[in-house]
Write a protein that binds this DNA or RNA. Structure first.
Lengths: 343, 343
DNA sequence: GTGAAAGCGCTAACAG
DNA sequence: CTGTTAGCGCTTTCAC
């Protein structure tokens, strides 16, 4: 049943050559005769030889594995990013060790420790809601293991980042609502310790300021952007004396639920209240009216992050030469926010 | 900058004891004095010692890592399953090596090879659309590495499976439509080489047969269940002479898009055509009308699969004692299929 | 309860 | 172009 594992020593003995030659041949070392190479490769295949990566890693101190820490796996955006990362990593012969922080810094620290102990060659992180400290990443930095943040990033001189221009996206979304004649716009955001939400909020503010509109703090709601939050926002709007005529929610699923709830309460989407979401989640296309949103290039972000990481590791880029890559995002205008013609 | 890695030899030297004792203490070996244990643990923590997993794996031939191969990472269902797996694995100190087959058997084989070379302790797989051969998994079996299938499974005497009762779910969904008075029900399915689609179809057929309704092959559409497919199905229905009055689509996102398209073409959902989806994707709750669907316990499936795998590995279950675990799924009735009252 | 010593399978000087 | 040799850091018999 249990077949015996065959090693380079077995191959060496059978072929009457040295293990070193076998090792070199298998690694396609230039100094080895092409004939011996193919001879060895053949025999290896025949006997079902597989390299013992641990022995190899033990020597080389490289694992060919990247750690990835994300807040949650089960969001459309994140799984799209991961899909992009996986594709690139796979092409370059790297593996991915994936774990989720479940939006908790504590868990994130534990994940980071596991990654560290697993001796990943590099770490890609999108931080949790409540992460404050950089501490759990500094162990990597001090051992020269590259750390790259994507989407929800931390600011650190030695870490690259891959993001979209959230400020501009927030500005565009808000400006669109202003263009539609909205004058009382509510913004539903997440934890503003996170760049993605903070910057969207800044963009929101800049757009209002551009029209000399006052900033009403009552109209800025910090939530967890869950579906539940969407329902609560709708209930709150329903109760308000002076209702907003525009609504910019930093997450599609939350926005979709909120829109649904508002409709049930008798509000007319677009006419009464124009709505813009964020992410271009599949959900945004199947709600009615279809949801105006910001296209968020998740797959591209994953590919870019991984490419950057590999580039850094293979020395194309110096490891302490951090860089910030900004991907293009784009406002997608759909029916939920079209009011022109109502005037 | 680059801190030196500290080993059990360093600890041994500093504490003037043998490396063997350090190793045993760190692994909580019973034969070691509690005092020496804590002394060693303390020093280890102080110096930032981390176990070199490769050296350890090289000796023990265990990796504490499971491989997971899924068709795609970026589906709500799959990422939910993965989230469940990750939680359990993490609790038991295992890591996850995740890769996607992108619905291609070729890629799946490559993934399996990588997993094999990475010497995963076990493999969890949900197979691709077009997978026919078991070949790429038999290498695992012959080396006694447990292989467990979940959701999209293969039949093999030595592999456990975790699934829902797709036949029953298909039956329930169809029966519900029949209960609503539908007599001409269309079923949109995926590749019927896959158990999940084949069984739902069987349930569909059984429900019709229970009412002595004829089986019209024109009303069974095999598609890839994409959003695009949803649009095509709607177009096709729109063109039909005798239109179906019920529609059972084996995927929520596809169903949601189809429903949307039908509405735009002027068809009345529920009244003209009652619709049932599958998966309880978030999308199903935000479309209007809300979509009747089958709740698919993804998180639970991930947890169960992982628990089973770990149980098998730790010897609770004999490895060649395959088992089939069937999780409960549940029809969730919403507005898209309610016609009672229209008569 | 602790130590000595061998070896897991591979790679990389170094030597020829 | 190929071989010799010495570890990588850990676990684990076998002693004491």
């Amino acid at each position: 049943m249990m077949e015996k594992e065959i090693t380079i020593y077995d191959l060496a003995k059978i072929l009457a050559i040295s293990p070193a030659t076998v090792s070199r041949a298998l690694n396609d070392h230039p100094a080895i005769n092409a004939k011996t190479k193919s001879l060895i490769a053949e025999k290896a295949a025949e006997l079902g030889y597989r390299s013992n990566t641990f022995a190899s890693h033990l020597r080389t101190r490289k694992t060919n594995t990247f750690g990835v820490i994300v807040p949650r796996l089960n969001s459309n955006f994140m799984s799209t990013v991961l899909a992009g990362m996986e594709e690139v990593a796979n092409n370059f012969g790297y593996n991915l060790l994936i774990s989720q922080s479940l939006e908790s810094e504590i868990k994130e620290q534990a994940n980071a420790r596991t990654m560290f102990n697993s001796r990943v060659d590099g770490l890609l992180v999108s931080v949790a809601y409540d992460t404050e400290s950089f501490e759990h990443f500094s162990t990597f930095i001090s051992r020269n293991i590259p750390v790259l943040f994507f989407d929800r990033v931390m600011d650190h001189p030695q870490c690259g980042t891959v993001v979209i221009d959230n400020e501009q996206a927030g500005y565009d979304a808000t400006s669109h609502l202003l263009d539609q004649g909205c004058r009382r716009i509510m913004h539903v955001t997440g934890d503003t310790r996170r760049n993605v939400y903070a910057h969207r909020l800044e963009g929101f503010k800049r757009a209002l300021a551009g029209q000399n509109l006052p900033l009403d703090n009552q109209l800025i709601l910090q939530t967890d952007l869950s579906q539940e939050a969407g329902r609560m926002v709708a209930a709150q709007i329903d109760q308000m004396q002076e209702k907003p005529d525009g609504l910019f929610i930093a997450n599609d699923l939350c926005a979709a639920v909120c829109m649904q709830a508002l409709k049930e309460m008798g509000h007319l989407v677009a006419a009464d209240i124009a709505i813009v979401g964020f992410n271009n989640d599949p959900v945004s296309q199947v709600v009615s009216p279809q949801l105006t949103t910001v296209y968020y290039p998740g797959y591209q972000m994953g590919k870019t992050a991984m490419t950057t990481m590999i580039g850094q590791l293979t020395g194309t880029k110096s490891p302490d030469n951090s860089e910030a890559i900004i991907l293009r995002s784009e406002l997608i205008i759909r029916r939920s926010s079209i009011r022109v013609g109502d005037f």
